[in-house]
Design a protein around this nucleic acid. Structure first.
Lengths: 230, 230, 230, 230
DNA sequence: TATGAATGAGGCTTCATTCAT
DNA sequence: TATGAATGAAGCCTCATTCAT
């Protein structure tokens, strides 16, 4: 795949260069987050981003105030996706374990997207104090949701008594790790991963064997390892 | 504790400055890894490292060829610790689940150390191609070990049939995440975490309920969240 | 008063936008000189100027070839005002001291205006060589006029013998300084300042005490200092 | 005079490069203030400064935190010189007019130096808020001194009753203007200017004719004008 | 071994100006 | 005439690294 000419750049040379402003802004974001994930935020330069978009560096400043703002918005998009997911689940109701499984599944899927991965692959210390706090608060809130579902489940009997904090850490770790190893186009689809994790990560918590589906070992021949991409 | 003057600097002013070279080298490493974890590799400068050691920047070049080498050695120390652990377990024998639990416990403890955390907090893309490859290979090897123990367990009946790859990913994710949230001096000791994780992460895998210890929910009032420090 | 919407912008939204071109040109100049004085030529951007006029930056290029031209014309307007003043005085006749006093008074008043202040607050080195020379020549000419009046006065006996060059420097300095400290709306009117300076700056020069007005110390409580606004 | 190789650079090529640090710092300041005055603060780049010193731009950062700090220290040196002068005069005593004359003379001399000129040629708005305030306060204090001497003189009868504020403005303006037109090596020495101004600027104020020296018109043929260098 | 000083490379950002619409 | 978008040039600053002492 040639990184020089992504299919979705509104700045394709010799093309009509008049798409909507928001489309371009989003294209910048898409390209930036991709590059930031690919090379790391510090190694990726705005020049790289601009080059991939067939524009020059200062043109980026029409859409963002600076590199940091781009980083922030990437993370924010991921965070917002998670918040939506949580809002939906909260609206739906169900036992603690049911909500937890839904959350795991949805969160796992978010983690397989670029914006979702930004949420955990990027370092909030690269952000301004203000933006850093916003994200850290959002993450805390997500963690609280995990714990709430677990304590809810313990209360309603759907989850075995356990340390909610540690359980949340364990689950979140597994899920966040997806952002490091998952690769679109590999031999596992996002849905497969999400489905598998929603089951696996709750097996030990469920009060009784409530598995609806067989373990379904995916006999993949992937070379991938759990070591992530770092 | 004053971060400016770590207790373990062999360059403490008015102290005997004639310790062995290796001791100094190690002190550089200890200080560097701490700073790199605290501020992030890119934000931490060699000046910062030197300052904390009460020496000057060029002095560091007596012990290391450059910043990258320092980073590499930090990771390497973490990786070597894991390798030792694996060697011990391999030497010990036991069922698949037993070995897996030992590995989880030991790996978790490594993750609570600075060098252990480097292994996953730092980005191998910051290393030279050569060193990067060394570490990535080492990580692959570790992952293979996780998978081996799982398949061993499935073979010897101690672990329920499952997708070893996914299981390894899930476990490794939980464990690696420790490197992000664990803080020495918090309300959880490294041993507690290791013990807890070795049980929790295998509950769903074990062929039969083989738990030796009660879940022991630690009713801590910690403010910490599963969001890690990023 | 809201700096964002000056009362005199011909582009006021919802207003008739069809005034004569020259009127708009002048409005640009008025806004620009105000901003340049307020923030300094280099810190003030054309964007700032355009914003205050409720137009966009490129629109300015319909009236001026660039930032430098705007600067030049501001200064030029100030210089022309001084030239007019001189022409009037020259046309009027009178003793050397009388002409000098008229010049001081008129020059002082010009200095209290934005265009007048531009003449000395802005740096001719920011102009093109051509424009820079024009202004520098004009300033030399003004200086020569000061000296002429003084030598005229010495010749006609209305001014005590003195070094015309130094005297001109001293007077010009006092007058130019007005452009730095005078603020419209303060407790001194332009006329008051002009009147006062025309007397004070010639007290030492006049061959005999020819003061028509008492010193009239204005017992103002102003906090202002002679340090100017820099 | 070749601007490329000032005689006083401690970095003269092929020379011993080990003078005292403070000497170098001062050399940077000397070169910078000269360049800033010559080209204007905004047009002069740190590259220019470094070039004249036969070093590279980043080397400057060994001595100063940035361009602004250099500017500030230049102004500060000028301000400190004025403060010293004032302290001496205050210590000396004398009538109001005597102190005023001493101040004028000393201030005039300071204005003929590079650091002195910085005080009024540079724009405090180019400084950080903190440094800007320091300088503006210092200038206010200087102005107060002028006014004090004048009111002292009025009180002790050595100065004719007048508006101290306006008189201070007039005097300060003449003096500050020196920073714009005076050129070392011209046909007027700093001492001549100072002497002349101390007399001329107080002629109109003195209660009685107290001139000790004749006007001594310096019949120079200089081409210089009172228009300053702008 | 340790240091003060200097450098080279490179990144982010700003802004006057131009161009196509 | 006005605009949104884009650019080129340039400046400041940082930092790992080297060198002479």
């Amino acid at each position: 795949m040639d990184a020089q000419s992504p299919d979705d750049s509104p700045w394709m040379p010799f093309e009509n260069r008049r798409r909507a402003r928001d489309e371009k802004r989003e294209a910048v974001l898409r390209t930036a987050v991709h590059l930031f994930l690919e090379q790391g935020y510090h190694r990726a330069t705005l020049n790289d981003v601009a080059e991939r978009l067939n524009i020059t560096k200062p043109a980026l400043y029409n859409y963002f105030r600076g590199k940091e703002e781009i980083l922030f918005e990437c993370c924010l998009l991921g965070q917002e996706r998670v918040d939506e997911v949580i809002a939906e689940i909260d609206a739906g109701g169900g036992t603690g374990i049911a909500k937890l499984r839904k959350l795991i599944q949805a969160y796992a899927e978010v983690m397989t997207t670029d914006y979702g991965a930004s949420l955990i692959r990027f370092d909030t210390r690269d952000l301004s104090d203000r933006n850093s706090k916003i994200l850290r608060d959002a993450k805390k809130s997500i963690d609280r949701t995990f714990r709430h579902y677990i304590t809810d489940g313990i209360a309603d009997g759907s989850i075995k008594p356990c340390d909610a904090k540690m359980a949340a850490f364990a689950i979140a770790g597994s899920l966040n790790w997806i952002g490091h190893w998952f690769q679109r186009g590999g031999d596992l689809s996002a849905e497969q991963v999400a489905e598998e994790f929603s089951v696996r990560l709750t097996e030990g918590l469920a009060a009784r064997a409530s598995r609806k589906t067989a373990p379904a070992p995916s006999k993949s021949k992937s070379k991938q390892t759990s070591g992530g991409k770092r």
